[in-house]
């Protein structure tokens, strides 16, 4: 962006942070790097039923140069790992990465010579989505976590630590998404005891450290 280079980091930049991040977090252009069965859940999430257009990320670009969110969907083996690295390198800043499912996050149950044991051996990852494959609800929760993270970023210094849900995350960009089934069970229990509010009914405030 041009303005913050003119004005430096002052009052105007802090307000620019808000509006730039607001634009960024509501207009992800995901690049689906689909290699395995998680792609089915990706398609389900991007279909009309779950309607990812609510989050402004409904338009997948199949060119790394036109996208800012790399979704690694499925098992990455060593034969395709250099390709993934190259695709990541071809994306322009700012860029984010979601590891979609167990295989992309950790290699999953493929403990063998052929599979990369988590794509964070190759590229930095912002959000890990658990599940084999993750349900669309988990994917949406991961996407919203990434939105929270983007909301708290400093446009001039994207490496500065950020608070998301009361936890500090730094340049290395690590956000854990726990399986949503636990949360849902808690919500069901809580709703029987009192007025339950689903966590997706409102965003929590993102604080900066």
């Amino acid at each position: 962006m041009g303005l913050e280079t003119i004005f430096g980091s002052g009052f105007i930049t802090s307000q620019l942070n808000k509006i730039i991040n607001w634009g960024r977090k509501n207009s992800f252009f995901p690049l689906p790097f689909v290699t395995a069965c998680c792609g089915m859940e990706f398609m389900a999430t991007w279909g009309s039923h779950y309607d990812v257009a609510r989050f402004g990320a409904e338009l997948p670009r199949f060119s790394p140069r036109q996208s800012d969110l790399l979704m690694v969907v499925g098992t990455i083996n060593h034969k395709i790992a250099p390709v993934l690295k190259r695709v990541y390198d071809q994306m322009c800043e700012p860029k984010w990465v979601i590891a979609f499912g167990a295989c992309a996050s950790s290699g999953g149950f493929y403990r063998n010579y052929a599979t990369v044991q988590g794509i964070d051996r190759i590229i930095p990852v912002d959000v890990y989505i658990a599940g084999c494959p993750p349900r669309p609800e988990a994917v949406l929760e991961g996407l919203m976590l990434l939105q929270k993270k983007v909301e708290g970023e400093d446009v001039l210094n994207r490496g500065a630590p950020i608070m998301v849900n009361g936890q500090a995350y730094s340049e290395d960009r690590l956000v854990h998404v726990e399986p949503p089934v636990d949360h849902r069970a808690d919500q069901v229990v809580a709703s029987h005891e009192g007025p339950g509010v689903h966590p997706w009914q409102g965003f929590e405030e993102t604080e900066r450290r």
Partner: peptide, 20 residues
């Protein structure tokens, strides 16, 4: 890209990342 998977728990790769 590192290939071996035995004796390489996530901690080894992750401690540089685990800021919190």
């Amino acid at each position: 890209i590192r290939v071996p998977y035995e004796g390489d728990p996530p901690e080894i790769g992750m401690d540089v990342y685990r800021f919190q």
